[in-house]
Design a binder for these strands. Structure first.
Length: 273
DNA sequence: AAAGGCTGCAACCGCTCCATA
DNA sequence: TTATGGAGCGGTTGCAGCCTT
């Protein structure tokens, strides 16, 4: 309790002292919570909130622990495999963030939700379509996801498409979810961690997949908007969204026109802004 | 250099579900 | 059966830091 009193020693009034604290957590609060959970375990959050002396709600303590303080929380950028998993699992389950998070070890539902809102929905916005629209789903399924698989396989040493498919587990074999590999899932192994991808989706990565079609048309001209990729010879790597990366990174507008050309070739009324 | 806009993320809110008395 | 409290979930908000003008 001394810790908490020290934290809040600058509180001006007794009335305010009795208020529940909100907002960003301090290092001292984090230390108190970590110490308390290490002794008493991560359950009964209201009890923890009261007993620890933290003037936080149980919900706030739980959230802070799960999303930030938990020792197995993974930080850093979302990997290609994780991006693929998010796209795929969201297509299966929708906004079931906690369920999706179960298949991304160390990632929290909050992190995945933020990723979806800030990255994926941004792309949908640029396409002037809803994330639940057929256009967007087609874009995900036929461009972004196959491209992600290509890049994942390119990174994995040396893994061909056939080798990836061979990693599909026997659906008849009983396993515990979410790890080891769930029946019907494919295991990617990279950077000392593993990811699991529903095997049903790997069929889209075969040699006849839309990804090949996509590759074939790289550098094609997209008309009607002032965008002229014909000047961009020698494309570099495509980024996560099917756009060219590196020095030849496509802008959002360029990728917008490219994707429109792929999926709405007959439409000329769209505009980018 | 400064101001305003934008982005990404941490945290909160409200609701639902579930266990227990 | 119903009331109550705790836990968990998805949606939303606030803000720090970055970017653009």
């Amino acid at each position: 309790m001394e810790d908490y009193e020290r934290i809040n020693s600058n509180s001006p009034t007794h009335e305010e002292d009795s208020d529940v604290r909100k907002g960003p957590w301090t290092e001292e609060e984090d230390a108190i919570l970590v110490n308390f959970v290490s002794i008493h375990g991560d359950a009964r959050w209201n009890h923890i909130a009261r007993s620890s002396g933290l003037k936080r709600t149980g919900k706030s303590c739980r959230l802070r622990w799960l999303n930030y303080l938990r020792p197995d929380v993974r930080r850093g950028n979302i990997t290609l495999e994780e991006q693929f998993m998010i796209l795929k699992l969201h297509s299966l389950w929708g906004n079931r963030w906690s369920k999706i998070a179960q298949y991304l070890p160390g990632r929290t539902d909050n992190e995945i939700k933020n990723y979806w809102r800030t990255r994926v929905q941004k792309q949908a916005k640029h396409l002037r379509c809803d994330v639940n629209s057929n256009l967007f789903k087609e874009t995900m399924r036929n461009v972004w996801m196959p491209r992600l698989v290509e890049r994942i396989n390119a990174q994995s040493l040396p893994t061909t498409c056939e080798q990836v498919e061979s990693m599909i587990t026997d659906p008849s074999q009983p396993v515990n979810e979410p790890s080891p590999v769930e029946p019907g899932f494919v295991q990617f192994s990279q950077n000392h961690h593993q990811q699991f991808v529903p095997a049903t989706e790997l069929s889209a990565t075969s040699s006849n997949s839309p990804a090949e079609t996509f590759s074939d048309v790289r550098g094609g001209v997209v008309n009607g908007s002032g965008y002229d990729p014909s000047g961009q010879t020698g494309f570099g790597e495509f980024n996560d969204w099917g756009c060219v990366g590196g020095d030849n990174m496509w802008t959002d507008e360029e990728s917008f026109w490219f994707l429109q050309d792929q999926f709405c070739p007959d439409t000329t009324s769209y505009s980018y802004n």
